[in-house]
Lab assay of single mutants.
Amino acid sequence: TTVKVNGTKYKFDTPEEAQKFAKKAADKYNLKVVVDGDDLRVE
């Protein structure tokens, strides 16, 4: 599972880890998590 934040992709072994990271990033930058198929985007 990958998470894309500000054009940078981060790869995670499990969707749970990816979800946690995406949520933290979204909170930090005051953005929202967008599900894109198997991957997540923070925008």
Rank of each mutant, 00 (worst) to 15 (best):
V3Y: 00
D36W: 07
A22P: 01
K4Q: 13
D13I: 06
T14Y: 03
A26G: 05
K9E: 14
G7L: 04
A25C: 13
K32G: 07
E16V: 07
A18F: 01
Y10D: 01
V3G: 00
Y10P: 01
N6L: 15
F12C: 08
Y29A: 07
V35E: 09
N6G: 12
V33M: 05
D36G: 03
A26H: 02
K20N: 12
D39A: 09
D13M: 08
G7V: 02
N6W: 13
A26P: 00
T1E: 02
A25M: 15
V33C: 08
L40H: 03
D13L: 08
K20T: 12
K32V: 14
K32W: 08
D39P: 02
A22D: 02
V42G: 02
K32T: 14
G37E: 05
E17Q: 11
T14R: 04
Q19V: 13
K24Q: 14
K11F: 14
V35K: 10
Y29C: 07
E43C: 11
V5I: 14
L40Y: 09
Y29M: 11
F21W: 07
F21H: 03
K9N: 11
P15T: 09
N6Q: 08
G37Y: 04
N30V: 03
K20L: 13
K32Q: 13
N6C: 15
E17L: 08
E17I: 05
V42N: 02
K11P: 03
G37I: 04
Y10E: 02
T8P: 00
V33A: 02
R41K: 13
D39W: 09
V3I: 03
N30P: 04
A22G: 01
L31I: 08
K32N: 11
D27A: 13
V5T: 02
A26M: 03
V3W: 00
N30C: 10
K11C: 11
V42M: 06
K28Y: 14
F21T: 02
L40V: 05
K11H: 14
T2G: 03
N6A: 08
R41C: 10
K28M: 13
G7M: 04
V34C: 08
D39E: 15
V5R: 00
T8D: 06
D13C: 10
D39I: 15
A26N: 02
V3R: 00
V5G: 01
P15R: 12
D36N: 05
K28T: 08
L31M: 14
D13N: 12
T2A: 06
N30T: 05
F21P: 01
L40W: 08
A18Y: 00
V34P: 01
P15M: 13
K20Q: 13
L31R: 04
V5L: 13
E16S: 08
K20C: 01
K23Y: 11
A25L: 15
L31D: 05
Y10K: 01
N6I: 06
Y29R: 05
P15S: 09
K20D: 14
N30G: 15
L40R: 03
D13H: 09
V33Y: 04
D38Y: 09
P15W: 14
